[in-house]
Amino acid sequence: MLLSKQKKNQNANNAKRRLLISINVLGSAGPIRFVVNEEELVEAVIDTTLKSYAREGRLPVLGNDHSAFFLYCPHLGSDAALSPWDKIGSHGARNFVLCKKPQAATNEAAAEDGSGTSSLPRRGSGSWKSWFNLNLKVSSH
C-alpha cells in the first residue's frame, strides 16, 4: 500500500514540476515571486508578471502588453533576451530580469501599423546590465 502511494506521488511530481521564480522589474522596488510550471512559456510568465505587478499597485505603471517586454536571465551570461516560445524551466534558472523593449523598436512596429508617432531619443546606453551593475555598487561604511 505504502509503496504504491509513493509511486503515484513520484509520477505526479515528474508530470508537473513547479518552480518558484523571482523576477526583478527594472525601476521597481523589489522582485515579484510566484510559482510556475516548468513547462510554462516565457511569454505566459511575462504576462503573469505584469498582472501580479499591476495587482500589487507597483510603480512605475507598466501596462499589460506582454509583447512590449523582454525577459533576461542574468546568470546565463548572455545579452540576448529569452525567446517568448522557450519553456521557463529549460534554462535551469530561477532568477530573471524583466525589461521594457527599447522605444525605437516599439515605434518601428507602430509605424508598420500606420499609427506611428515620433518619440524623444533615449538617454544612456539602454543596456539593462549597465543600469543593473551601477545600482548594485553600494558603499560600505
Rank of each mutant, 00 (worst) to 15 (best):
Cys73Met: 13
Asp79Arg: 05
Asn13Thr: 09
Gly27Ile: 05
Leu20Cys: 14
Tyr72Glu: 02
Ala104Gly: 08
Leu19Asp: 02
Ala29Gln: 09
Leu134Thr: 08
Val138Tyr: 13
Val25Met: 04
Gln103Gly: 02
Leu2Asp: 09
Ala111His: 12
Phe96Cys: 05
Asn14Gln: 15
Asp113His: 10
Leu120Glu: 15
Thr48Tyr: 11
Leu98Phe: 01
Ala12Pro: 00
Ala12Phe: 10
Asn37Ile: 06
Ile32Ala: 05
Lys7Leu: 12
Asn64Ile: 14
Ala104Arg: 06
Trp128Tyr: 14
Val45Gln: 03
Phe69Ser: 01
Val42Ala: 05
Ala81Trp: 01
Pro74Ala: 02
Phe34Ile: 02
Gln10Cys: 07
Lys7Trp: 09
Leu26Tyr: 00
Leu120Thr: 08
Gly92Glu: 05
Ala44Gly: 11
Arg94Phe: 10
Ala15Ile: 05
Ala68Asp: 09
Leu136Pro: 06
Ser119Phe: 10
Ser130Cys: 08
Leu76Phe: 04
Gly63Ser: 02
Gly116Tyr: 04
Val35Lys: 05
Ile46Pro: 00
Lys8Thr: 13
Ser22Thr: 12
Leu98Trp: 01
Thr48Asn: 15
Ala110Gln: 08
Lys101Asn: 04
Gln6Glu: 15
Asn95Pro: 06
Ser67Thr: 12
Arg123Asp: 11
Ile23Glu: 03
Asn37Cys: 09
Leu76Cys: 13
Asn14Pro: 00
Lys5Arg: 08
Ala80Asp: 14
Gly27Asn: 04
Gly63Val: 02
Ala109His: 01
Leu20Thr: 08
Pro102Val: 01
Val45Gly: 02
Met1His: 10
Gly92Leu: 05
Lys137Cys: 10
Asn14Thr: 08
Arg18Lys: 15
Glu112Ser: 07
Leu71Gly: 02
Ala80Asn: 15
Gly30Arg: 06
Gly57Phe: 03
Lys129Phe: 13
Asp79Ser: 10
Gln103Val: 02
Val35Trp: 02
Ile88Cys: 09
Ala111Cys: 11
Gly63Asn: 03
Asn95Glu: 14
Lys129Ala: 09
Ile32Trp: 00
Glu108Ser: 11
Ser139Leu: 15
Glu39Phe: 13
Asn14Asp: 12
Lys16Pro: 03
Asn133Ile: 11
Asn135Phe: 10
Gly114Leu: 00
Val25Ser: 00
Phe69Arg: 01
Leu2Ile: 06
Ala110Ser: 11
Ala15Gln: 08
Asp47Val: 04
Asp65Gly: 05
Asn64Gln: 14
Ala111Gly: 12
Glu108Tyr: 11
Leu3Gln: 08
Arg123Cys: 10
Ser83Arg: 06
Asn133Trp: 07
Val138Thr: 10
Leu19Tyr: 03
Glu108Thr: 07
Ala93Leu: 07
Leu59Ser: 14
Asn107Thr: 06
Val36Glu: 01
Arg18Ala: 13
